[in-house]
């Protein structure tokens, strides 16, 4: 196994005592790994992301980034190791795309905050990698949701950190922009060995884009492993209280394909076999509502 990019050891955190948000979370992520973090609303995903980015102080446990204790690193040192792409960002002033991307260079600037040629090159490279060169002079207030998401990713790229945390990067994007963002992330992982931790609600996206899925429920890890192993109908029902059918992807059998099933319209066993026959994918498992 490659060296660990990050390691969480029995991490515990609560906003109010007695109501833990993170309840003894332990896992490690290897360098160059693409991991998806999934779980229902309120399961602690975003808090975990905030903990890894140093924004919340743990009650107990430890987070090691590249072998160093997170709590012993200053903000700038941490930002050089971990870049965060938020779900959305609202800029108070109308910066241009280039100005917004250049904010990623902050941890690398000297005491006087003056940019060097290397900083300018990093910004130009990040703009080129994310295909934003033609928009570099456009105001961030005049971008579509997809373009703004790309700007936030470009800003994280300019940060040149070996680990990137993304919080729902495609939640507000149309299919075209979603694919553009995912292609970029995949390319960065392939070419630069970027370690990616992706928080998402989209289980199919998690199954398709990551080699490992962490299923989170009530502040604990409820599953950890390859997508097909973690995203079973039972595990999803337990975590989300949702009825789903899990099929194998017609073109890539190793990827599970998760289909929500409406309780009142859940197919009977004969219906299921018909559906199985008519569907190109193989039914891995299914869970139907008890009232069907």
């Amino acid at each position: 196994m490659a060296a660990a990019a990050m390691e969480l050891q029995d991490v515990r955190f609560a906003y109010r005592s007695g109501q833990p948000i993170l309840d003894g979370v332990s896992f490690g992520i290897a360098k160059g790994e693409v991991t998806a973090l999934v779980g229902p609303n309120g399961s602690g995903k975003t808090t975990l992301l905030r903990a890894i980015s140093g924004s919340v102080k743990l009650d107990s446990g430890a987070i090691l980034i590249d072998g160093c204790h997170l709590g012993r690193q200053g903000r700038r040192a941490l930002a050089k190791k971990v870049a965060v792409v938020p779900q959305q960002a609202e800029f108070a002033f109308d910066y241009t795309v280039e100005e917004a991307v250049s904010m990623g260079r902050i941890p690398h600037l000297g005491a006087l905050g003056i940019e060097s040629a290397a900083d300018r090159d990093a910004v130009a490279k990040a703009l080129a990698q994310s295909g934003l060169e033609h928009l570099r002079h456009r105001s961030v207030h005049r971008l579509s949701g997809g373009e703004l998401q790309l700007v936030l990713i470009a800003r994280a790229l300019a940060q040149a950190s070996p680990v990137m945390l993304l919080d729902e990067p495609t939640s507000s994007l149309d299919l075209g922009h979603e694919q553009a963002v995912l292609r970029l992330l995949s390319k960065l992982n392939d070419e630069q060995g970027l370690t990616i931790l992706l928080v998402t609600h989209d289980l199919n996206l998690a199954a398709r884009e990551s080699r490992r899925v962490l299923l989170f429920n009530r502040g604990r890890l409820a599953g950890d492993g390859p997508p097909a192993q973690v995203l079973t109908a039972d595990a999803i029902r337990q975590a989300y209280g949702a009825d789903v059918e899990v099929l194998s992807h017609p073109h890539a059998p190793e990827y599970p394909l998760i289909l929500p099933v409406h309780r009142s319209r859940a197919p009977s066993s004969t219906d299921t076999s018909k559906r199985h026959q008519s569907h190109p994918g193989e039914l891995i498992s299914s869970r139907r509502g008890e009232t069907s």
Binding site: R50, S53, G54, S55, R75, R76, L78, A79, K80, V82, A83, V84, P86, A89, E90, F91, A92, F93, Y95, E99, S102, M103, G104, R105, I106, P107, L109, G113, R155, Q159
Partner: peptide, 18 residues
């Protein structure tokens, strides 16, 4: 540069090293 980063909120600025 830190003032610029603050334009998208304190939490966001903190992740940029501010």
């Amino acid at each position: 540069p830190s003032f610029n980063a603050l334009a998208s909120g304190e939490a966001d600025a903190a992740t940029l090293g501010v």
